[in-house]
């Protein structure tokens, strides 16, 4: 049992309320501003009759609260309407693009954890010597510079100056693939097509690294502070006196305790990283939901925008719930909060 039923219920209600709030804010934002949403929907040169027909089609001739009620009723049944620019089902379109974003963010998370934990342990073991101070200085830089700037710098560095990685797309079009799912990387590995997997990875490496660096910096800072606290604790000092090596104390003893605050913060920061996919996917022409969202806004595709923002909101809330649940799992004292 992770949480007591009452706590779980309260958390679920809060989450549902937040998601409802996101839906309301998005819906009214898109409609209250003058000239919208019809101005966002029509193609240039549409006739009066076209506009009127469009209005009726989308129920826009009714009052805004009624419109919201209709939209909500459909949304609860899983119907988010039809995309205006592609004439396809919004949910289907999002489901098609979501796996690419999930693979990208998970790869970025793995890179961030590896870099962050590795650097923190390295800098703990070599305090007051050069690796430690290098790590500290690099970390200041990593904390300051956002994913957008990293992504552009990588395009310049690994795409143009040293052209070793592709700067756009998800897989080389010459590699034919007829995959059953959108999880291209995972599926190509499972089907033992390592040539495709390597190609997909080479496309994902730069965007994933750009997303990972700011997160790695946060993990490093928090984990290092926690490790410093832990290695000052009685049990660590005692172990040192009894002749245990510094490496063993840090890796076997202190790391486990220090990971609790680190993982909690990683979860929170992970939601920020998910938000960062919007612009990073755009820069690398990566076919995920972030890129789709910018297309939707540029094309003024109202139902798709609404569906995508709700998707992002849902992902944020789910990640936060998972973080809280895993926090309770890691730290028994919080289980009955």
């Amino acid at each position: 049992m992770l949480m007591r039923p009452l706590v779980a219920l309260k958390t679920a209600i809060t989450a549902a309320f937040t998601l409802f709030g996101v839906a309301v804010v998005t819906f009214f934002l898109l409609r209250i501003v003058p000239g919208n949403p019809i101005a966002m929907m029509i193609a240039p040169g549409a006739s009066e009759a076209d506009i009127a027909r469009l209005k009726a089609d989308y129920g826009l001739d009714r009052s805004i609260p009624v419109q919201f009620w209709i939209w909500l009723k459909n949304a609860v049944r899983g119907d988010f309407g039809t995309s205006i620019s592609t004439h396809r089902n919004v949910l289907g379109l999002i489901a098609e693009r979501l796996p690419a974003t999930i693979e990208l963010t998970l790869l970025a998370l793995v890179i961030a954890l590896a870099l962050g934990i590795g650097a923190a342990v390295l800098s703990m073991l070599s305090r007051r010597r050069w690796p430690g101070s290098v790590v500290d200085n690099v970390n200041g830089l990593l904390l300051a510079v956002p994913d957008f700037v990293w992504a552009l710098a990588f395009v310049l560095l690994f795409g143009v100056a040293f052209p070793i990685l592709p700067i756009s797309g998800r897989v080389d079009p010459r590699l034919s693939y007829d995959f059953a799912t959108g999880f291209t990387l995972l599926e190509s590995i499972l089907r033992l097509r390592f040539d495709i997997a390597a190609n997909v990875l080479s496309h994902m490496l730069m965007p994933a690294l750009a997303l990972a660096l700011p997160l790695a910096a946060v993990i490093l800072r928090v984990l290092k502070a926690a490790l410093e606290t832990e290695t000052g604790q009685d049990y660590a000092v005692l172990a040192r006196i009894r002749g245990m090596s510094r490496l063993r104390i840090v890796v076997q003893e202190a790391l486990r305790n220090a990971m609790i605050p680190t993982l909690a913060l990683t979860g929170v920061q992970f939601t920020f990283m998910f938000g960062g996919t919007v612009i990073v996917e755009r820069i690398f022409g990566y076919p995920g939901i972030g890129n789709l969202a910018i297309d939707a806004i540029v094309n003024r595709d109202l139902p798709l925008i609404q569906g995508l923002i709700l998707t992002f909101g849902l992902i944020f809330i789910v990640i936060n719930l998972l973080v809280e649940a895993s926090f309770a799992l890691l730290n028994p004292r919080l289980r009955h909060g």
Binding site: T14, F17, T18, L19, G21, V22, V25, L29, L30, V33, N36, M40, F274, G275, G276, V278, I279, G290, A293, I294, I297, V298, R300, I305, L308, I309, F312, G313, F316, I317
Partner: peptide, 23 residues
């Protein structure tokens, strides 16, 4: 606090692009 919670559930980059597109 509730308002902040709702706000935090929006991806900021997406929201800023949306707001500027609308305005």
């Amino acid at each position: 606090s509730r308002l902040v919670d709702i706000w935090m559930a929006f991806p900021p980059v997406l929201l800023s692009i949306l707001l500027v597109a609308v305005l």
